[in-house]
Simulated scan of single mutants.
Amino acid sequence: MEGRRDRKKRQTRERIQTSALELFTSHGYRNTTIAAIAEHADVATRTVTLHFPSKEDLLFADDPFAPESLAARLDTRPGPVLDAVGEWMRDTMHALDERDADQGRKPGETWSLRVKRATLIAEDEDLRGRGRAGYYELERLIAAAIGRDMGLAPDALAPRLTAYTVVGGLRELYMTHEAHHRDTATDELLPLVDRVLDFARAGLLRSTAP
């Protein structure tokens, strides 16, 4: 159970990150200073840098879709890799909605912030580089798991192409019309997740057909 001190620390981190995203969106990533973020979050500048040593960390720290989270799910999966990826996506997205409810925010507010985050990363060359490193690790994990199931090397074409399709497709969810105009529950976006995974399954089947 989360103690009072840990809860306060988490809430401070989340408030700082939310403030940063709001300012990055309204004023631009490069034009936003740490001092401005601290003022917006109503904390000291040193508090911001203690939680987030660099400005980039404000966008990349505490990612619920981090590779470590997917790795844990793949290690304990009872079935096919892509089924496990879908369950991981659904569970994580629902957890974000539950966090919104616990903190008195509107359903989907955290997702809306993540859409803004994805847009900021896509528009900045340096941020794209760091984001790409995280995507590569997700691709590596999925390809390795598919390769093990199929008796193929993780760098074989079929596992790698499937993993690239999955991660690329899920990343593009942030850029879709549906994501940018979302004002309903996560269930509105889950069919899009399923479409990405179905597309990847079909490609994997074709690429391994005799």
Rank of each mutant, 00 (worst) to 15 (best):
M1A: 15
D6E: 14
D6R: 14
D6C: 05
R7D: 13
R7A: 15
K9C: 09
R10Y: 03
R10A: 12
T12K: 05
I16T: 02
I16L: 01
Q17C: 05
A20K: 07
L21C: 11
S26L: 06
Y29D: 12
Y29P: 09
I34R: 01
A36R: 05
I37D: 01
H40E: 12
D42S: 13
A44N: 10
A44Y: 03
T45H: 11
V48R: 02
T49L: 01
T49S: 04
H51T: 01
L58A: 09
L58N: 08
A61R: 14
F65Q: 09
A66C: 06
A66R: 11
E68W: 13
T76W: 08
V81W: 01
L82D: 04
A84M: 08
E87K: 13
A95H: 11
L96H: 08
E98Q: 15
E98L: 15
D100W: 07
Q103L: 09
Q103S: 13
P107M: 06
P107A: 07
G108T: 00
E109F: 11
W111G: 09
S112A: 15
R114D: 13
V115Q: 03
T119V: 11
A122C: 02
E125W: 04
R130H: 15
A133T: 13
G134W: 07
L141C: 09
A143I: 01
A143R: 06
G151V: 04
L152M: 14
D155E: 13
A158M: 05
A163G: 07
Y164F: 04
Y164D: 06
T165F: 02
V167M: 04
E172A: 15
A179Q: 04
H180T: 12
T186I: 05
E188M: 05
V193C: 07
R195Y: 08
R195G: 12
F199T: 12
F199P: 00
R206F: 12
S207T: 12
S207M: 14
P210H: 14
